[in-house]
Amino acid sequence: MLQIRLASPDDLDGIAALLQANAPSRGGSLTGEFPSDKVAAMLRSGMPVVAALRDGRVVGALFSSAAAQPSPPPPVAAMLRAWPGGPDAYVYGPVCVAASERGQGLPARLYAVLRDSLLGAEAILFIRRDNAASLRAHQRLGMREVAAFALDGVDYAVLSDAGHSKAEDLEHNP
């Protein structure tokens, strides 16, 4: 059985394991590494984190963070220079889904819980241009490319859901 809910501190180890399994050091497409201490800090940030659990095991996670951060990581800083978003904007991501759950619409379900938690505020995210699957998945969610940037020789697209409505949620995810 799949359960999708706001993450709790009890989910820390499962979320950290999922993110590390998909980190660049293991051939994954996430931008950056996510050891337990970094995940713990993200969980304590005060911004919502959504977890998907199948039979008690974390199989998906979607983070959010404030757009106004004192010292954002370099890719987030570059993204916000390219597209700062509106006054209610937040940083969407990372999002990570276990290999066993891919292709089943889990990102849309995680995103729906996050949108409800943030009352429809504007999500801003970046995706590596060479991550075609993630670009397609987010476009299916109604997000659109609004800017681009390059960092350390890697090209990124910046996406936003500004103007996204609940009606679009139903259109994209009946």
Rank of each mutant, 00 (worst) to 15 (best):
L19I: 01
V154P: 00
L18Y: 02
R115S: 14
A99F: 01
Q104T: 14
A17K: 05
P94N: 04
A61D: 07
V97Q: 06
E168F: 08
G93W: 01
A112C: 10
D88G: 15
P73V: 15
A7W: 09
Q139C: 13
R115Q: 10
L6H: 12
G105I: 05
F126G: 03
A147M: 08
A68G: 03
H138L: 11
D155F: 07
R5S: 15
G14S: 14
Q20A: 15
A68K: 10
P84S: 00
R129N: 01
V97H: 02
L30S: 12
A137M: 10
S134Q: 12
G85A: 05
N173Q: 02
S160N: 08
A21E: 11
D11R: 09
E122L: 13
P24S: 12
L62E: 12
A61V: 15
F126H: 15
L110A: 03
L2C: 03
G46E: 12
G27L: 12
A147D: 14
I124D: 10
S29G: 05
G28I: 02
R109T: 02
S100Q: 13
A99I: 00
D37L: 11
M79A: 02
A68S: 12
A82V: 08
L151C: 00
S65P: 01
P48W: 12
P94D: 00
D13R: 00
L110W: 03
W83S: 09
M1H: 07
L141F: 05
Y111V: 03
Q104H: 13
G142V: 10
A112D: 14
A78K: 02
S134F: 01
P74A: 15
D161M: 06
G86Q: 13
M143S: 10
L141W: 04
D11V: 05
E168Q: 15
R54D: 08
R44G: 04
I124K: 07
V58W: 00
P75R: 02
Y90I: 14
I124F: 00
D169R: 14
D152G: 09
R140P: 07
G103I: 07
A51P: 06
I4N: 08
E101S: 08
A108S: 11
P35A: 13
A108E: 11
G93H: 07
M143K: 14
Y90D: 00
R140Q: 15
V113F: 09
P24M: 11
V158D: 09
R54I: 01
I124Y: 04
G153N: 02
A167K: 14
P94K: 03
P48M: 07
M47C: 13
V58S: 10
R102W: 13
Q20Y: 09
G46R: 03
V158R: 09
H172G: 13
L110G: 06
